[in-house]
Design a protein around this nucleic acid. Structure first.
Lengths: 346, 346
DNA sequence: ATAATGTGCCTAATCGGTTAAGCAAGGCGG
DNA sequence: CCGCCTTGCTTAACCGATTAGGCACATTAT
């Protein structure tokens, strides 16, 4: 059964007035007598009128819709950021047109194109590979598309972005290890591609900064030379295991894993080697993934302000969408503060 | 900077032909000479033409967009179902307009209205409260809206739905406990509202069925009388603790928790009381949430086919959207098979 | 040679809501 | 009584893609 079309014309016909009058009455604009307004509202109610927002969008050149491109949904990090976006978007009476790129920058481009063709007012993007698409982004912003990037700042881009203050996060992790009396810290990182990412690099730098402040030497880094993209956990397990077998048993007493998954694998390898966590080695993760609170031992980690990241992204986007005729807004790169969550692994 | 409008008219003007010809050339329909088609394509490329999908939707009365309403995003169950939906929708060249109801049936209604006003072709809904909104759903389907429900079957509704076969899941859990030599099983359920839900009831029934087949008596159920909506884990901890304090120490040797969160709390209470898992009591959960594999001991649980649920929902929806002029399709209620994941808690 | 068919392109209407412009009636001041 | 403003409503033109219908000319069939 096709939905029967109860549009403004139908109401107009019903009342013997013009479509324009119906429009003015319904939207409470223009000049309509109280009596007429009343009759229109009643007729609309009676006929079950619903506005066609597609038509409105076409005319208004605005769709009250935001395009959101994420890498995936499976991790709780993404999910919470998205909830933050959703909540804020709802407050602004906007909807969310969501697609996953699954980490493929080509697919990401196609999705962005599609979303723009569908008339989204602005875009919030978790870039799959900022470098690969940076030219593409630039072209679009030049044409007037409003972007906000989440999770990663895109270098050389004149667009707003929101991310965790990874430097601060790394610093918190490092300082915590120092304050727990640790002297030699090992940082566990992921595969080469990931390692180049600015966020991971910042975490490492932050950690080293804390070590330096305490007069300790910079951390030894595990992970740079792995060509393939292992699952974090498995990679960390193997890397730490090999490191220990290579005779580094007494070589470190603290570990900062730049992702919780890496911490899980690390602890597994340590335990297997007869080292106790946290007595012999303290381990600090990053992300506060769901399992971390339940891990054995419960993992000390750095929690990202995920919901806020999403909310701020929306706020930044609307700031631009509502941009008056004043001077163009300066680019904003927000770095939100993460928090140390102390549990039993340190 | 406003995006400059390169529409079909612009191309037509450029070439001195009509908009219709441009349209035929671009969409490869109608009758256009090869030469003209070529010139149109080049001009489109050169001017950077992009189709306005809003206009297309208005005209075609189809938007290539699905509306998706979920309760939330935070749990990995939702996230995976959504990934399944996203993947399948992408295959069908449709986008996903997503909103969260956060469990509020009133908000859910408003969102559904909005999505329909925005012209979605169909809806996939995780009902916040099937009973509360069932009349609303019925009215909409009567008007021709296509629904597919996910996670819960809506009683009395003439709409398709996809969910886990909870009866089977409960049966698998129960049978596994039986095969582990357990004789007296306790089922841990949640607060009253949740308890009424058909899914939880089905899990319980399935479990009892397995017990019955083994000639054992039906499970004792914990949880019905709790008025408030505690967090699962905390509730289970308290309930099991009280149950033990009430002198039930030897009263059971197996537990089926209808959500993993309940299992976590249960195990905590058991361990605290000096009972060993799985030696003294086997525990089986449901959902295979992220922490379960990392729990101590790693939790035996029932894994739902989440991605498939999302994919099947989309498939069912398209079956209806593409419905020919043939006889109306019969309602389908898919129950997908869950799987037992054996770990160390049993 | 004439009719039938096909080709290549165009005009105009449509989808439904919005908006500039304007018209007629009533009120008011001068 | 005339000019001017206000009120209440209308007409028509958008927004951009789609589509029914049609016209002129070329090709083929009869």
């Amino acid at each position: 059964m096709r939905r029967k079309t109860v549009d403004m014309d139908a109401i107009a016909k019903e009342l013997g007035c013009s479509k324009t009058t119906v429009h003015y009455a319904l939207r409470n604009t223009g000049r309509v007598s109280d009596g007429m307004r009343q009759r229109v509202l009643e007729a609309a109610e009676g006929l079950g009128y619903r506005p066609n927002l597609i038509a409105r969008s076409l005319r208004a050149q605005r769709s009250a819709t935001l395009g959101v491109v994420v890498i995936g949904l499976a991790s709780s990090y993404y999910a919470h950021v998205l909830e933050g976006i959703d909540t804020a978007a709802q407050q602004h009476e906007h909807s969310m047109l969501l697609v996953c790129s699954y980490g493929d920058p080509v697919k990401e481009r196609e999705h962005i194109r599609l979303l723009l063709d569908k008339g989204v007012d602005g875009l919030i993007v978790m870039p799959a590979d900022p470098e690969a698409n940076s030219e593409f982004y630039t072209r679009l912003t030049d044409e007037g598309t409003q972007f906000v990037f989440v999770d990663r700042h895109v270098p050389g881009m004149n667009a707003d972005s929101v991310a965790t203050d990874n430097l601060m996060g790394g610093y918190l992790a490092g300082r915590h290890l120092v304050q727990s009396g640790r002297k030699r810290v090992l940082v566990v990182t992921t595969t080469s591609r990931e390692r180049r990412s600015t966020s991971v690099q910042a975490r490492l730098n932050g950690c080293n900064q804390a070590l330096q402040e305490a007069g300790l030497e910079a951390a030894l880094v595990l992970g740079p030379n792995v060509p393939d993209r292992f699952p974090d956990e498995q990679f960390a397990y193997q890397a730490v295991r090999e490191h220990l077998l290579a005779g580094a048993a007494g070589g470190f007493d603290g570990v900062f894993a730049v992702h919780d998954g890496l911490a899980y694998g690390t602890i597994e390898a340590l335990t297997e080697a007869g080292l106790r966590v946290p007595e012999d080695v303290s381990v600090v993760g990053f992300d506060d993934q769901d399992p971390s609170a339940y891990f054995h031992p419960p993992l000390t980690t750095i929690r990202q302000p995920t919901r806020e990241i999403g909310g701020e992204a929306v706020r930044l986007l609307f700031r631009r969408l509502e941009e008056g005729d004043g001077a163009p807004l300066p680019r904003q790169r927000l770095s939100l503060e993460p928090a140390l969550v102390v549990r039993k692994s340190s």
